[in-house]
Design a protein around this nucleic acid. Structure first.
Length: 156
DNA sequence: GCCAACGTTGGC
DNA sequence: GCCAACGTTGGC
């Protein structure tokens, strides 16, 4: 069992959008970064736990939980010329990009904000708060995952 | 909207 | 293989 943080811009795809999907599950398409792709392709497993993070918005932070619901498979949006994620260099016979399905688990009553996370010593090693870290899919430690849930629920 | 930091591309 | 130019990310 592994733990991840996955970023999404709520103006493009928010946690409420995920809830609204059939079975509260959707494919996580549009990843065009090799490191993030490799995590999905090589390391993620069905059932892995995900912190759902809203970036580039009014209230930046972790808004809820999800889980990995499929193995990695080819990201078909790379072959669609009309899609903004179109990548002419991705050959359908040898797809360059993959995605996984993500299933909604829980929406927090409140957002655990980036600002708040930055102020907590125990979370200072999270990739999220490292300078210049832009990866949209990041591994997190189990205790970090638990810590953020506890913050959201006011247990701490 | 700004801009720092980063990843990718492509000429050499 | 180097590195400048460019495009993107994402906090503020």
């Amino acid at each position: 069992m592994k733990y991840w943080l996955m970023k999404s811009e709520p103006s493009a795809f928010s946690i409420d959008d995920l809830i609204a999907c059939e079975n509260s599950t959707d494919h996580w398409d549009g990843i065009r970064n090799y490191q993030a792709r490799n995590f999905m392709r090589d390391t993620m497993e069905i059932g892995d736990k995900v912190l759902f993070y809203h970036s580039n918005c009014d209230e930046v932070g972790v808004v809820g939980l999800a889980e990995v619901a499929s193995e990695a498979y080819q990201d078909f949006t790379a072959f669609d010329e009309s899609c903004k994620y179109y990548d002419p260099k991705s050959d359908p016979d040898k797809p360059r990009w993959v995605m996984v399905d993500i299933k909604f688990v829980e929406k927090f009553d409140r957002t655990v904000t980036l600002k708040e996370i930055k102020q907590i010593d125990e979370l200072s090693n999270m990739k999220l708060v490292q300078r210049g870290m832009r990866l949209s899919i990041q591994p997190v430690e189990e205790f970090e995952y638990d810590f953020i849930i506890n913050l959201a629920k006011g247990v701490l």
